[in-house]
């Protein structure tokens, strides 16, 4: 079966297939406290990408690990078997490990490891549905979950990706757009400090295009950070009302 690569991703009026402008991100639905048994958790929906993240800890590190006078962050990402249209375990194992490492790298610098010495904070993510932009969704959701768990952080991390198709830069691509992209940019940003914790580029980029893409992504992350803060404030207010 062949993917229909001839289909254009932009309509004649310049909007994308889901009626967005190229520089618009998908509407986000963010909610903390999705998993009651966890120290902190969050559920995020970006278009058709759905992710749940739970945070446990600070708790005892498993097995006998070398003594560490700063805390440890342990990240794990899993996909459900029906997250992708092709029910599969094979292709996903590689993504699982890679995403776990990238999630760790993106959050590591934002979390204040000195606030929980000798213990581990576990961040577990489960992708319920993969609709494009999975890794940015996971990272954003994980930041919310860490905040919900009360883990001390220097800043909130938001992440976004961008696809380059021909000359067009499409922010927050869907699965279809990602599978036909000529290049991509992925950024995780500390939203108040405006510092990049993780960045990758694939495909061919000239300097001007690269800096334009970076600019777009950073602005989008900062806006997303504001949305995240509003979500956290609202959920915290709700929680104090209930008790």
């Amino acid at each position: 079966m062949f993917l229909n690569s001839q289909k254009a991703l932009l309509k004649s009026d310049g909007t994308r297939l889901d009626d967005r402008l190229p520089s618009h991100v998908r509407p986000a639905f963010l909610k903390t406290g999705a998993v009651s048994v966890a120290a902190g958790s969050a559920y995020a929906e970006f278009g058709s990408t759905k992710v749940i993240v739970s945070v446990y800890g600070p708790r005892e590190s498993k097995k006998a690990q070398a003594f560490s006078d700063i805390g440890r962050l342990n990240c794990d990402v899993k996909f459900t078997s029906f997250a992708t249209p092709l029910r599969g375990k094979a292709g996903q194992d590689v993504s699982d490990k890679e995403f776990s490492v990238l999630l760790h790298k993106a959050l590591e610098d934002a979390v204040d490891l000195h606030s929980f010495p000798k213990t581990t904070v576990d961040v577990f993510a489960l992708v319920l549905q993969s609709g494009g932009g999975d890794l940015p969704a996971i990272i954003t959701c994980a930041s919310l979950a860490l905040a919900d768990a009360g883990i001390v952080m220097h800043d909130i991390v938001a992440a976004i990706s961008l696809s380059c198709v021909g000359k067009d830069l499409l922010l927050d691509p869907t699965y279809k757009e990602e599978s036909q992209q000529d290049g991509s940019v992925f950024i995780a940003l500390m939203t108040s400090r405006r510092e990049i914790t993780q960045v990758t580029f694939t495909g061919e980029w000239s300097s001007t295009k690269a800096s334009e893409a970076l600019e777009l992504c950073c602005d989008a992350c900062v806006k997303l950070g504001e949305v995240m803060r509003v979500c956290l404030k609202e959920d915290a207010a709700e929680a104090t009302e209930d008790t």
Binding site: K105, T197, F201, E204, S206, S207
Partner: peptide, 28 residues
């Protein structure tokens, strides 16, 4: 980087956060 001077891929390999302007400087 390839012969034409275009960036073919970029990976941040851990460490602390970077300001976007610093990143662009590193690229050049």
């Amino acid at each position: 980087v390839n012969k034409k001077g275009s960036i073919c891929g970029l990976t941040k390999r851990g460490g602390t956060g970077l300001d976007p302007s610093v990143l662009l400087d590193m690229i050049s």
